[in-house]
């Protein structure tokens, strides 16, 4: 218990927030970096995985291939991947940027499967009669996607992004292994100095950051859940079983592989 009290006292110590302080301080800069890595990698992952997921969900094409592929991506150990990328990327870009580029690539690869699963499982789950009705009204395939399938599966789509954001926040900590910033650098400096306050305080910061971001996503899902949303029910179980590794969306493709 004393550990925790000390860590909280450390967290509240204004000295740790003074701008220009010695690395890994000030804390707010490390939080900012952590969020930056998260946003950059999730945005890149989403811009790849969402269109691909929509395409698969809408056409039903390429499903087996992508399920197998993302399954493989999930199995990759992120730390090993990061090290390998660091070496490979380090051969082509300057050292200072190599850490950033390698970390972002590793995090993008980590983030893609959940977003992809949410997108295609969501679009696929929309009632085929509703989709048919759109077509019968004279919607183009793109209009069916944007006016029916995406609005009705938005909670599931956001659920996929939510899962991947949480994974990235938790995993971005390891970026400090290749001398990158973020909250991981507070923890690793604590390990180096045998300073429990830094280790525990850093861990608490990562946890709180994850919970806050998760709460924002939960709210977004609630706001986008509407009449006829295909995600309405799965969504509820998801919120109840909230953890740093949300499982509902992530496991959908595994279930479907058995069909």
């Amino acid at each position: 218990m004393q550990f925790f009290l000390d860590a909280f006292r450390w967290l509240l110590d204004p000295a740790n927030y003074v701008p220009g302080a010695q690395n890994p301080f000030p804390i707010q800069d490390r939080i900012g970096e952590h969020l930056l890595y998260t946003v950059v990698s999730v945005v890149i992952a989403a811009s790849i995985a969402l269109p691909l997921g929509f395409y698969i969900g809408h056409t039903g094409r390429g499903r087996q291939l992508v399920i197998g592929f993302t399954g493989g991506m999930r199995a990759l150990p992120t730390l090993g991947l990061l090290m390998a990328l660091f070496v490979i990327v380090g051969a082509t870009v300057p050292f200072t940027r190599a850490a950033f580029v390698a970390s972002i690539i590793a995090l993008v690869i980590l983030a893609i499967p959940s977003i992809l699963a949410g997108a295609y499982a969501g679009v696929e789950s929309v009632d085929s009669q509703t989709v048919d009705a759109g077509r019968a009204s004279g919607m183009t395939e793109l209009q069916v996607l944007t006016q029916i399938e995406i609005p009705l599966s938005l909670p599931l789509i956001i659920g996929g992004v939510r899962a991947s954001v949480l994974q990235v926040i938790a995993t971005a900590v390891i970026a400090s292994y290749i001398s990158l910033g973020g909250l991981g650098s507070i923890i690793s400096s604590g390990i180096g100095l045998n300073d429990n306050n830094r280790i525990l305080g850093g861990a608490i910061l990562v946890t709180v950051l994850a919970l806050v971001v998760d709460g924002i996503f939960a709210l977004a899902q609630r706001l986008t859940r509407r009449r006829g949303s295909s995600g309405s029910r799965a969504q509820k179980t998801h919120v109840r079983g909230r953890s740093l590794r949300p499982v509902t969306v992530a496991e959908t493709p595994a279930d479907e592989r058995n069909n």
């Binding site: 009632d127 009669q129 509703t130 009705a133 019968a136 029916i148 009449r227 006829g228 949303s229």
Partner: peptide, 12 residues
């Protein structure tokens, strides 16, 4: 004009 079974309306 196309009228489908009851489920044909857009629920959202």
């Amino acid at each position: 004009g196309y009228v489908l079974q009851a489920t044909g309306l857009l629920p959202h």
